[in-house]
């Protein structure tokens, strides 16, 4: 049997000279397998100073808000038209801006005093909204001022419903910042985080105004489940409100 002949060193030399190219090839394969991650990361790092700034973000947000506003107006128009077809009372009429000139968010009387009164058309029972939603109803008026009973006042009672499950309940102030929602059914199908709105069945307040978010539920309460509601409008911080005139 003839002995195996190893290749001569002279034949292997060109291959040894090629090792840098082999490394490059392996690197390229790695880049391909990682889907260009090192390049993308390096590009992100180098181009960071030139990324779109907060101003552009603001423009985009403003454009988004404008779009939402237009959509909301369109939906409200459609809602008014449909309510008119069904002979239901109008969702809301004119809105009157009013400054908060005194506030008592705690104590025996939880109320706001507004700088607009009966001369401007404000009447007892008118709903008052702030950024975020409903904060209370007008309890009394003078010619130039009006007193708003806050939803947190223990004398406040407002009919509401849960937006998701459409179950009705009665929102009662407790004297604290979070009123109590007492459901009228045994199984209201609610969970924390559900948003509540004024009830379309209520004759006291315009329908579907946002009120707050359910925070905690006591399913064992008697005679029906109860829930604590975090109000969406901060009554103790708001400086301007809107009175919904009928």
């Amino acid at each position: 049997m003839a002995p195996v002949r190893l290749p001569r060193v002279g034949v292997l030399l060109p291959l040894l000279r090629l090792w840098p190219w082999v490394l490059v090839l392996l690197a390229l394969v790695a880049v391909r397998l990682s889907k260009g991650a090192p390049f993308s990361d390096a590009y992100g790092l180098l181009s960071r100073p030139f990324w779109p700034g907060s101003a552009q973000q603001e423009w985009l947000s403003a454009a988004g808000r404008l779009g939402d506003q237009a959509r909301l107006e369109q939906l409200e128009r459609e809602n008014r038209r449909l309510r008119g077809l069904l002979d239901l009372p109008a969702a809301q009429g004119r809105r009157l801006q009013a400054a908060v000139i005194s506030r008592e968010p705690g104590g025996w009387w939880q109320q706001l005093l507004l700088g607009k009164g009966s001369l401007q058309g404000v009447g007892e029972g008118d709903a008052v909204v702030a950024p975020g939603g409903l904060i209370g109803l007008v309890a009394s008026t003078t010619p130039t001022t009006s007193t708003v009973r806050l939803l947190s006042d223990p004398r406040s009672r407002v009919g509401v419903w849960v937006g998701r499950s459409r179950h009705h309940g009665l929102l009662s102030g407790l004297g604290t910042g979070r009123p109590l929602l007492r459901f009228l059914e045994k199984d209201p199908d609610v969970r924390p985080g559900d948003v509540i709105f004024t009830s379309p069945a209520s004759t006291l307040v315009p329908p579907n105004l946002p009120v707050g978010v359910i925070q905690r539920i006591d399913a064992d309460a008697d005679p029906a489940p109860e829930a604590l509601v975090q109000l969406s409008a901060p009554a103790d911080a708001v400086d301007w409100v809107q009175v919904l005139l009928p």
């Binding site: 025996w108 223990p154 004398r155 009672r157 009662s172 004297g175």
Partner: peptide
């Protein structure tokens, strides 16, 4: 009873006492 717009006894004994 729930719809009565008044301070209830439970509220008086808790929040009323705090006030």
């Amino acid at each position: 009873l729930l719809a009565l717009p008044l301070w209830r006894w439970q509220d008086l004994s808790t929040v009323g006492l705090q006030v």
